[in-house]
Nucleic acid binder design. Structure first.
Length: 603
DNA sequence: AGCACGCCGACT
DNA sequence: GTCGGCGTGCTC
């Protein structure tokens, strides 16, 4: 503790909006030695007796608070777990989402495991070889190494070859690690973590790679977390909440397939990992690489406003052939809803190696389910080995030998040497979903599957035509996405605008809308209020990005007002918060997500 | 969340 | 008069 600093400014570990600010405490002499920014503390809140957890955010010599200060009760552990950078990020992210910083910190700081901590404190810092920077290949003379060193923001097109993205991420990370800085590598799901970790290990050295994801055992997760917080020059890899990892001297945040809906955080306040990454890049000045075969409309918007720079790959696009669903004379093909040209190509390819068949849904029940498709194709190709890969049957990889691999989208195994043919079935079904994001989502998942094809292998996109099929066959997804964004802009739909979904009692929602009207948010940008049930209504407002801070501030004020208001009484139902706010719901106009039950999605 | 403060109906 | 109902507000 600094000489003379006898005041600790503490963030309270509580989801209550009223406690979402810093509180000053006196540091008693007995705790002074360990009272450092970032440590977890316990302190009395409201007239002795009640003790809460929190973190010291900063130390000060004097307090602005007029009243009598209480003393910190104890320091839970001398290990700093909340870095100034992560605190700043949590504050920014919560403010932007009209939420509470400690809700973000819940994602950022894993539960303490005392034994892990003891072992960590006892261990000597590991001796490691310096990292050798590896050239970033496949992008011509784009000078990506300099861009990354210079803290640029890039929308990078993935190289369309099996697992090329893992190599690109490892090469990018090597550039910053070679300078003694750290990198955050975010991927959508655990399968992707498992794929990228060995590649990073080979490129950077195994001791340089740290896994950090919510599915780890608590002790493992805390061990990884402590390593990230204390060692320089690490690549920290994980799923969406890895963007909050306490990486030291952060030089790069790289995100694979940023359009994957798994990056949307379901826990309050529902901050998308991409948005958190953008905020963190701004705060820390590190490089940001959004790597994808087919970017989201959100990233296209960032490109168009000049916030990040698109970088194409230099190489050959997959051979994608849109195939109308004109059924031929083959009855078996007809059963399996595969056009005869694609059928013949698949039969031929199957003599040489694995063939991927992407379907929309898992299981046997759906007319298009993975298991049902597998049995149909199994009958048609009695000599072929059939592999089913979906959410339940996880298959990471298949060998180079012939096999029919039936996979739901996102669950496709990687084939050694690449698939000899890829059939994208059920495209029409995927596009029939009612969602603002069907088109970009379909394009993204088709593109990811197409990139698994061997060099020169053909990819058949079945039953899809028009501009979206053309985007696939020309491999010019960004052009289609740009048109998609233009349509959203014309309609004032996200991500051309931001949205806030306001749910609660009719009173509370009405008051919130009135408060928004006072800052000029009215007219067409306030969508008609919908009745959810007898006690709940929902309003949606939309607004330009420049107004986001104002809207969030006003709505936060309303939440604060209302949270002090009505309590669960006999009259009102218990646990029904009077006012909940969700900013930038992925599907604001269909209500998907907004009403999801379970953990809080509220303000 | 808890706990204190404060302003209206039945009581010694 | 005053005890205590719970509506309202605050937590360094």
């Amino acid at each position: 503790m600094d000489r003379g600093a006898s005041i600790a400014r503490v963030a309270v570990d509580s989801p209550l909006p009223r406690l979402d600010r810093l509180f000053d405490y006196r540091v008693p002499p007995s705790l002074a030695a360990d009272a450092r920014p970032g440590v977890r503390v316990r302190m009395p809140v409201r007239s002795a007796g009640r003790v809460m957890d929190g973190w010291i955010v900063e130390l000060a010599e004097r307090s602005e608070f007029g009243g009598e200060l209480s003393e910190l009760e104890s320091i839970v552990s001398p290990v700093p777990v909340l870095s100034p950078a992560v605190w700043a990020l949590a504050r920014r992210a919560a403010d932007r989402a009209a939420g509470v910083a400690s809700d973000i910190l819940r994602l950022a700081i894993p539960k303490r495991a005392a034994r892990v901590e003891t072992a960590h404190l006892a261990a000597a810092p590991p001796a490691r070889e310096p990292v050798t920077p590896v050239a970033v290949t496949g992008y011509g003379n784009a000078a990506l190494e300099d861009a990354v060193r210079g803290g640029d923001r890039l929308a990078l097109r993935g190289i369309p070859a099996p697992e090329a993205w893992t190599t690109t991420l490892a090469q990018l990370a090597s550039v910053v690690l070679a300078e003694g800085r750290g990198a955050i590598i975010a991927v959508p799901d655990l399968r992707d973590v498992e794929r990228v970790v060995p590649v990073l290990g080979r490129t950077l050295g195994a001791g340089r790679v740290v896994r950090l994801d919510a599915e780890q055992a608590p002790a493992d997760r805390y061990r990884s977390f402590l390593r990230a917080a204390t060692e320089d020059g690490l690549a920290v890899v994980g799923t969406r909440s890895v963007v909050y990892a306490p990486v030291r001297r952060l030089g790069l945040i790289a995100m694979w397939d940023e359009g994957d809906p798994l990056y949307q955080e379901p826990l309050a306040p529902g901050v998308h990992a991409r948005d958190a990454a953008l905020l963190r890049q701004e705060l820390e000045g590190c490089a940001l690489v959004l790597l994808a075969h087919s970017p989201s409309t959100d990233v296209e918007r960032l490109v168009e406003v000049g916030w990040c720079r698109p970088v194409p790959f230099a190489g050959t696009a997959p051979a994608v052939i849109p195939t109308a669903l004109q059924l031929g004379d083959d009855r078996l093909a007809e059963q399996a809803r595969i056009p005869s040209t694609a059928w013949r190509a698949a039969s031929e390819a199957l003599r040489h190696g694995p063939v991927l068949v992407q379907v929309a849904r898992p299981g046997e029940d759906a007319p298009v389910g993975s298991v049902r498709t597998a049995s149909e194709l199994g009958r048609a190709f009695p000599n072929a080995r059939v592999v089913v890969a979906d959410g339940e049957r996880r298959v990471l990889q298949v060998g180079p030998e012939p096999a029919l691999v039936i996979a739901t989208r996102g669950a496709e195994p990687v084939a050694e040497g690449g698939y000899r043919a890829v059939l994208l079935l059920d495209g029409d079904r995927m596009l029939a979903r009612e969602s603002l994001r069907v088109a970009e989502d379909a394009l993204r998942t088709w593109s990811n599957a197409a990139a698994l094809a061997a060099p020169g292998a053909r990819v058949f996109l079945v039953g899809v035509s028009g501009r979206i099929a053309a985007a696939m066959s020309t491999w010019r997804q960004p052009a289609f996405i740009a048109e998609e964004l233009a349509e959203r802009r014309a309609a004032r739909f996200p991500p051309a605008v931001r949205t806030a979904t306001i749910t609660g009692s009719a009173d509370a929602v009405e008051a919130a809308l009135a408060a928004l009207a006072e800052i000029g948010l009215a007219g067409d940008d306030v969508l008609p209020t919908a009745l959810i049930d007898d006690a709940t209504v929902r309003a949606i407002v939309r607004f330009d990005y420049g107004r986001g801070a104002d809207v969030a501030r006003v709505l936060r004020g309303e939440i604060l007002r209302r949270s002090a208001g009505r309590r669960p009484t006999a009259r009102s139902r218990p646990n029904a918060p009077e006012l909940r706010v969700r900013m930038d719901d992925l599907e604001p106009f269909t209500g998907e997500g907004t009403l999801r039950r379970g953990r809080r999605i509220e303000g």
